[in-house]
Amino acid sequence: MTPAVTVVDAVKRYRDSDHNAVDGITFDIQTGQVVGILGPNGAGKSTLIKLICGVMPPTSGAVAIFGADPADYRIRRDLGAVHQTTSFDMMLPVLDNLRIAAAFRGLRWQSVRSHVDSLLAAFNLVSCVDQLVFTLSGGQQRRLQVVRALLRVPRLLLLDEPSAGMDVAGRRLVWQLLDEITAGYGTTVLWTSHNIDELERKCEQVLVINRGRLVEYASPTELVDRFGQSHLAIRPALADHGPRIVEFAACAGLHGEAGTGVVRLSGPDVADRLPGLLATLWEHGVGVVSVEVRRTSLEDVFMKLTAEEADREEVGSVA
């Protein structure tokens, strides 16, 4: 099957810039996948989104959507996009902006009106339809962008910080709608966000980008397993048993620190070593009230990966 998105050695350098905003990135996204793009400010995320949706061509390399040029208007009809910057006519009402957007996409207003009404209701915008767009809050304008992107259900949906400026309720509405269109229509979603937690929850794969280059491309679970670490938090039955737990943990090849009322353990395969450690503690009369396994988050892994990339850049520039 032809991938939904194909990027091959894509490079984008803006005029008068001394570096590539996108620097030789290659990856595929399969149809129906939900993929996140994760990177610090200036990493090239928005530029990559613009290349994929055909807003601008790459300086070199190739980008394709379902095997075709993203600038092809026939392909762009199957594309929905929410960019970081709004492009509404601020002096027109909400409904007029949506009518104009439908016309630009070749959609008859009467044929999509009921769908639009459903989207407006889902995003709590029904009461705003007659308001001038400039009177909407930032979160409402963001939700209106999502409604506009979904005037027809796209085969590919590109989201550049879709929940920026939204409250918790607004973010959950976006999550729920994405669940519905991916499950119901098999829509492929490519999604950038500074909210790492939502990418970890919602994305099957994550592209980690830094300084225009692809650092890693894997599932959130795989990234955490490869670059993260699990920790144990053990609460002893008696406070003075903390040092003894640390002692027995050392014999099991684990590093331990006894804090106030809790012992924190770390080391290779810490969760796998836990049953043996608990058996040893039981044999020696060391009681345990509770055990909690704490895994490194995707945010921790992201910070580690981007820091390592920055260190390599610094070493390379010195050399």
Rank of each mutant, 00 (worst) to 15 (best):
E257I: 14
T280P: 00
A258Q: 05
A239N: 10
E216P: 06
Y217Q: 05
R273P: 02
A239W: 09
N195P: 07
N195V: 13
S219V: 07
H231I: 04
D272M: 09
P268K: 10
N195D: 15
N210A: 13
L223G: 05
E247N: 09
E204H: 14
L274R: 12
I209C: 03
I209T: 04
D197E: 14
V215A: 04
F227G: 02
Q205W: 05
A252H: 12
R211E: 14
T260H: 14
A237I: 05
L199I: 07
R201T: 15
L223C: 12
L238E: 14
S193F: 09
T280G: 02
L232P: 01
L238W: 09
E222D: 15
Y217D: 02
A239L: 13
D272Y: 06
D197G: 11
E216Y: 07
G242M: 00
D269H: 01
V215E: 02
N210M: 01
L265T: 03
V263P: 00
S266K: 13
P220K: 03
A233L: 14
V263Y: 00
P236I: 02
D225H: 11
T192D: 12
L281W: 08
C203E: 06
V262D: 05
I245A: 00
N210I: 01
L254D: 05
I245N: 05
V208N: 06
L214Q: 01
D272N: 11
P243H: 07
V208T: 01
A279Q: 10
E198R: 09
A218R: 04
D269C: 00
T280F: 03
E283Y: 08
C203I: 05
I234S: 04
G212N: 05
E247T: 13
E257R: 14
V270Y: 05
R264A: 13
L274H: 11
G259C: 02
G228N: 12
L232V: 04
E283S: 14
R244D: 08
R244Q: 08
V246E: 11
R226T: 13
V206A: 01
T260C: 11
G253W: 02
A271R: 14
T280W: 07
